[in-house]
Each structure stands twice: as C-alpha cells, then as structure tokens.
Design a protein around this nucleic acid. Sequence first.
DNA 1: TCGCAGGTATACTGATCTGTGAACCTCTTC
DNA 2: GAAGAGGTTCACAGATCAGTATACCTGCGA
Lengths: 191, 191
Amino acid sequence: MQEARPLTPAGRRIVAAADELFYSRGITAVGVDLIAEHSGVTKRTLYNQFGSKDHLVATYLAERDHRWRSLVQASVEAAGTPAEAVTAPFEALRTWTETNSRGCAFINALAELPDPSHPAHRIAANQKLWLLNLFQELAVTAGCSHPAALATQLLVLHEGAVATQPLSLDCLPESAALARVLVRSSTSPRP
Amino acid sequence: MQEARPLTPAGRRIVAAADELFYSRGITAVGVDLIAEHSGVTKRTLYNQFGSKDHLVATYLAERDHRWRSLVQASVEAAGTPAEAVTAPFEALRTWTETNSRGCAFINALAELPDPSHPAHRIAANQKLWLLNLFQELAVTAGCSHPAALATQLLVLHEGAVATQPLSLDCLPESAALARVLVRSSTSPRP
DNA sequence: TCGCAGGTATACTGATCTGTGAACCTCTTC
DNA sequence: GAAGAGGTTCACAGATCAGTATACCTGCGA
C-alpha cells in the first residue's frame, strides 16, 4: 500500500518515464526494465516504490487523470459565460491533444487490461463519470434544458473526437462546433 | 504472402479463435500457443498458414472489418427511406454491440501496436475512412445540406458511442437519437 | 501407385518478462 | 556517532513468449 505515501524524487522520475512510455508504446509492450532505464533508476528502486507493475500502471493513470482534470478545470474557469463554460472541455482537449496524439490513455489501457478487477478499470470509469457529471453541472448552471441528455451527447462527442485522433482525420473542430450548437440551441430553444 | 490463398479449414478455425481471444483479452496478452490450443490445431499449422503472429493479427482485423461492413451494408439496404439509411450504421452498431462489448477492435489494436508500419494501422484507418465516406454518400443521396460536415459529425457520434461502450454508460441510444435529429434538420432546415 | 498438400506430435532455441535476494553506499537527523 | 531512509549493484529465479526442427500421418488426385 504505497499510495498514501508521497513520492520520492526517484519515484516521480519513474512515473514521468512510465507516463511517456506507457502512453506512446502501450502498457504491455513496455517492460519495467525500460522504465527503470529511462528514469535513470534501478529496477530495485522501482519495486521498492511501487511494489508491482500493476501498481505503477495505476499510478500512471491516476497521475494522468489528475493532470487532465486540472487542465479542464482551468479551461472552465477561464470561460467568459456559463454557456461557454459548458463546452470549455473541448478547448482543453484541443490543448491536450497537441502533446497527446495517441488517443485516450484510459480507453487504451482498458483495451490492454481486460481484467475488470484491475485498478485501471476503476480509474478509467471514474474519469469518464467525472466528465459526464461536470458536463451536466455546467449545463444546469447555464440553464440548459434536458441537462442530462445534453451531457451524454457532449460526452459522446468528446470521446468520439479523442478516439478518432490517432487516425488523423481531424474531427475535433467539427466535434467542438457541434457541441457549441447543441448548447446554444439548448439555452435558447426558440430564438 | 499467404493473403491471396484462400484459408484452409484449419486456417478458418485459427482465425475464429484469434478473433475471440484477441478481441476479448487483447492482442499482446494472447500468445500463439493459446490460439492454437483454442482452435484445436498445432502451432506448426498456425505458422504454416500465417507465417507470423503479426500476419495473423492483420488477418483477424481484416476479417472483422469484412464482417462489420457486411452488417452495415445490410442495415443500409434494409432502411425504408434515404434519410433512415444515413443513420442505419447506428442500427447496425446496436446489433453489433450485443456480442462485441469491448469497444472498437481497431482502436484497441492501435493502442497496442504503436508502430505505424504495422498492417493493423492501414486496416484501421481504411475502416474509419470507409465509414466516413459511406456517411457522406448516404447524406448526398438523402439530399442533406453540408454532407461532408454532417458525415464527420456522424462519425464522431458513432466512434464516441463505441469508445464509451466498455464503460457501461449506455450512450448509444442518445448518440443514435442525436444522429437522427442532425439528419432530419439537415434534410429539412426550415420545416 | 506415386506424390503431395494439409496437418499432427513433440522437443527445442533464444529472447524477454516480472519479480526477488543480498550486500553495499550516502546523506540526514537525532 | 548511531540509525535509518533512499538508492545502487548485480546476479538470479521462474515463467512465458515467438518461432523452428524433425519426423510422421492421411486422404486424394493424377
């Protein structure tokens, strides 16, 4: 149970290397030896800090989740109006994908780790639920009609844009544009 | 170069076992020994038929792509009106996900095989491009305005519904409903 | 009857993977 | 100056992986 303890400097370097390697090459394809080498650390230190590869994978996903949520929160707070705040996550996604072009790390992780008891499943499901609830809360604040249905639609548009990203079809602009239209027509159904 | 030669009975059993195992457990996590065992075949036969695991993976994806396209085509042809034909792939998806509940096999494969020269990338990209073009052709036939933009929107909705599927959020109905609304408002902009 | 394609049976190579053991080093803190 | 936390070094266990070697079997068509 290393999760309560804050990470040591070596632990932080390990997570940083794991983040880059797991995301860019896949979890199963990257061995702990490679992560240890890239973080300038001994494999022994890696196991002293994380206990197992599965635990390191969970830490990698949790850290990524934290970074993503911070970016979305900042984007929401920077929005000018409540209506703009509803589609702010699409702005965050545009920034995010500039440096993360291999799709959703959580969806990718679930593809490689089908065991539902793996901690990755809980983290991934929580991340999507968090975004769904955020969409709904923002829709309520903006006075949208049918906020629950709208939130589901926005989540699907968001995930669709992320999922198609590795295919270089450039769907994000169209997806964000449709999201804004949906919010607009939901706040003023009869203009 | 085994692709031109039709598959032998043992070859078909191997592909069937690979389809089930690769999709449900992940490509990297499933070894060729397991596939040989599940198809009641020797590993030697597997290598005589496919030459390498990478080639078997490519065959698995190509066969899955073929099955999926056939289902979509049938759904399109069964549609009553040109407008209903545009959203027919969402009907096909509903049938498809009844027995394929671990998301998109192609997106999942790309997550595990980051090497862009792997044949899986070409097959996955072609599959999404085929669907995008199909949406556009159907939109043109149905007389939709801005068929290219509409096709991109429908693809995003489609991929979003598939991507969120392993999370059990049940987004497909809302996604399909929005798709129908988009097509309707695109065929008759001012009712 | 001959040859051959498709397939079986089994053992094996060499690489790679996660994870451990044991001894040692170095800095900080009490 | 003693103790302990954080880290290193390096060897190693045990499993699993992709892919190969060799010899054999069987049904079928020329």
